[in-house]
Every structure is written in C-alpha cells, then in structure tokens.
Design a protein around this nucleic acid. Structure first.
Lengths: 233, 233
DNA sequence: ACCTGAACACCGTTCAAGT
DNA sequence: ACCTGAACACCGTTCAAGT
C-alpha cells in the first residue's frame, strides 16, 4: 500500500452512497424535487449519471435514501429530548418530538411529498415510530389505544399535514371578485372577512401554518389524553 | 347545414374536454396514475396525443380537470344528504359528508395523491369546502373556530388521510425476523403481537383502514364539539 | 471495482402542414 | 376549427467498453 492509495491523502474524494444522497438532498433543498435527476446529481458530483448506479440501485432507491437521510436528521434531533418523567408527562414529550420533526420537514419542504410516495417503510421510519409509540405507552396507554393513536396522528406524527388551503400568492382579490365570492361561497367569504382582521389580507393563504398545526395536534393529543385517563382511571 | 353535419347523427363522437377527462380518469382507475400519459389518453380515444392539446392546455391542466371530475362526484353524492336539523346535529352532518367523500376516494385511489400535488384550488374544491364550513357554522361555531376546524381536519375533510403504515404484503415475517424486531423495535413488536389476536397476522398492514379513519375523524369532531359547546354556552 | 459513451425506450410539448 | 407527422429536449436505464 502506497501513500497515494491512502484515502485520507487522496485529493479526489471517492464516491459513495452517502455522498450521492447528500448531493440529491441538497439539490432538492435548493431547487425542488423535480430538479433531482440522475444527470443533475451526477453533475453536482462531477461524474456521469451512469456512475451513480454503482451506489444506488435506481431512482427509487435514491429517493428511499433521501427519506432515510431526513428521518435520520429527525432521530438525531429527537435523541437529546427528555423522555416523559411521569405518565402524565406523555403529552409534553410527544408534542416536543412531533414539533421537532416538523422543524426538520420545514427545512426540507420536498420531504413530505416524497415520504408519502414511498411504498416501503424504511428502517429509520420504523425506528422513529417505535420511539413515539414508546412515549404513548409510557403514558399508560394500552397497546390498542396506542395503535389507534398512531393512526389518528397519521402524517402529523412526522411533523407535517397536507394543507389543502394552499396560498394563492399571485391572486390579488379585487373588489368585484370578493363580491362574486360572497355569492358563490358565502361561508368562506364570511370567514375570510371575519378572521382576516389581524393584519392579514382577505385572501386564501393568510393562515399561520404553525398555529394551525399545533391547534390540530393539540386537539388530537387532548382527545387521546381523555381516552387514556378514562381507561387508566 | 346537411344531415351529416348534425352532431347527433354523426357516427364519430366529437372530442371535447369532458371526454378527454373521462378517458384519463378511467385509465387512472384501472391502471394507476402513471399510466395516464398524453399518448395513452389519445390512444384510448382513437386519436393522436397532439389532438388533446385542443381541449386541455397541457398535462397539468389535464390533472386539474381529473381532480375537478372527482370532486364533482363528491359534490353530487353529498347533495342528497340531510343538512343539520339542529345546531347539535352538525357533527352527524359533517361526519356523513366526510365519509361520503371517502367512498369516492376509495373508488379512485389515485385521487388523493393528485389532489395534494395541485397548487391551485379548483372552484369545485372551494365549493366543497364552503359547504362543509357551512355545516360547522350551522352548529354554532364562530368563524375563528370554523377556520381552525377546517385546518385541523386537513385532508380528512375530503375523505382521506395519508397512511404512513403501509401494508407490506410481500413481507412474510419469519420467526427470526420477529425476534429481531423485538430487540430493535420493542414497542411496535409488542403492539403487533398484542393487537393482532383478532384474526389478523402479526405484520404491518393488518389494520382496518375504515376503523382507523373513523377513529381519527371522531377524535377530531368530538374535540371540536367540546370547544364549540364551551364557546356557545 | 468503478467510471464512461453511446444508445434505447420512453416522456411532454412545438410547429408546420394538412383537411 | 380540429387533427396529424415529424421533430426536439428531456427522462431513467442498459450495456459493452474502457481503466
């Protein structure tokens, strides 16, 4: 073995799976998931697209790996958090975990959609859910209630929920459009004018995502806590 | 105008937007959303792919139209249902509406994923949400609570929720794998053995989707009802 | 063992040409 | 006004060939 064979001395860093996944994640972060093509990932690494196939099986495997990377980030972030100290502390612990996951998802806006398309659970995903379920069980939930709880949380467990009211930024609502909306959609029109007093403009898309996320999360956690208390009492 | 110019007498049905959307929906229903390509839709209609551009602006517009079609189906189904008779009846009415939407989504399994990718609200989607919000308001919710409620329901309002525990049908869990899982994922392993007594096998994917959906839905509706009652009391 | 170049079978979409 | 054929710029992926 010569000095030039030593990896640490070599100038060109050898390609490996992690570097491929890292490049893909960074492209998705900056340019969106559609920009993640095999050719583009290769280009980012100074290599032809075909070389990637030595480190990932195919595009699907690349996407699996990207999810893996993001969930690892969540797991690492969550590892430092306090476990529930008493059974009654379960809600706080679950809430902290889920809000941390949400922070990671906000940093990788493409991740939720990709996670949803994955047909297989990655081991990292299973590990995260196992930890969250552990908190529910520590709160005194039965296996059965814990199971229902995981389903009820759904994707909220990972810090995201699909928002159907998407902001329509380009849409400036003129006076006549508002009038028109009042006739066709009276309830939404009323809601928009009633709730938009606090600094926002009367358009769809004015909602505070963080507020709405925690409202929905607490609604579910509070409901689960009632069921838990009823069963353990 | 001659007899052959008359549309009703003509043997070849003229192409139009609705026929294009109908063909696309039927392809997606039978072969999945990935099978919906411009060439395939054209083929189904006995026409070249390029002809479709006379009736839809592009692929994105085609997908918008497909969503339009499915949401119309929901709206039609929901039109026959009883509105809430008393304020206290709001929960029943909302529940019925959402479970009807769910039936439509189950008939078009590709629809939820496509709906989530749409950036703009279609008018049909707005109409559906306006109707649902109307039920909440009829129950005596404030605009503010109604607004939170719509967000808390999220995609459940349209009858679907993203299931993160996807069934892994191909995965037969051998004895050694179960043993391995018990070490790495003790909580999930415990849950699976505890809850799977009722006829199912101890694998991910044994869950009754309908049961879990209604559990989560009722959890949210019950929580909202408490908030509503507290505010109107 | 890893990387490359050329090629293949697909996409969505354009454009000039037909009727 | 509507449809077509050929073409273009992209995809993911294969395969034989290089080192």
């Amino acid at each position: 073995m010569t000095a030039t064979d030593d990896e640490s001395d070599s100038v060109r860093i050898p390609l490996n799976r992690d570097r491929v996944l890292g490049a893909a994640v960074s492209i998705a972060d900056s340019d969106g998931i559609d920009a993640v093509t095999m050719r583009r990932v290769g280009q980012e690494l100074g290599v032809e697209a075909m070389s990637l196939y030595n480190h990932v099986a195919n595009k699907d495997d690349l996407l699996d790996g990207m999810v893996e990377t993001i969930v690892d980030e969540v797991i690492e972030m969550v590892a430092t958090q306090d476990p529930p100290e008493t059974p009654d502390d379960w809600k706080r612990a679950a809430r902290d975990r889920i809000l941390s996951a949400r922070e990671v998802m906000l940093a990788h806006p493409w991740a939720p959609a990709v996670i949803e398309t994955r047909t297989d659970m990655t081991p990292e995903l299973v590990r995260y859910f196992d930890g969250l379920l552990g908190i529910l069980l520590a709160g005194g939930m039965t296996f059965d209630l814990g199971h229902h709880a995981m389903h009820a949380l759904g994707s909220r467990a990972l810090g995201f929920s699909q928002r159907l009211f998407v902001p329509d930024d380009a849409h400036e609502s003129s006076g006549s459009e508002v009038r028109e909306m009042e006739i066709e959609f009276p309830n939404l029109a009323g809601m928009l004018t009633a709730v938009s007093h606090d600094g926002g403009e009367p358009v769809l898309g004015w909602c505070d995502d963080q507020t709405e996320f925690t409202f929905g999360l607490d609604l579910i956690l509070d409901g689960l806590d009632l069921l838990r208390a009823a069963a353990t009492r």
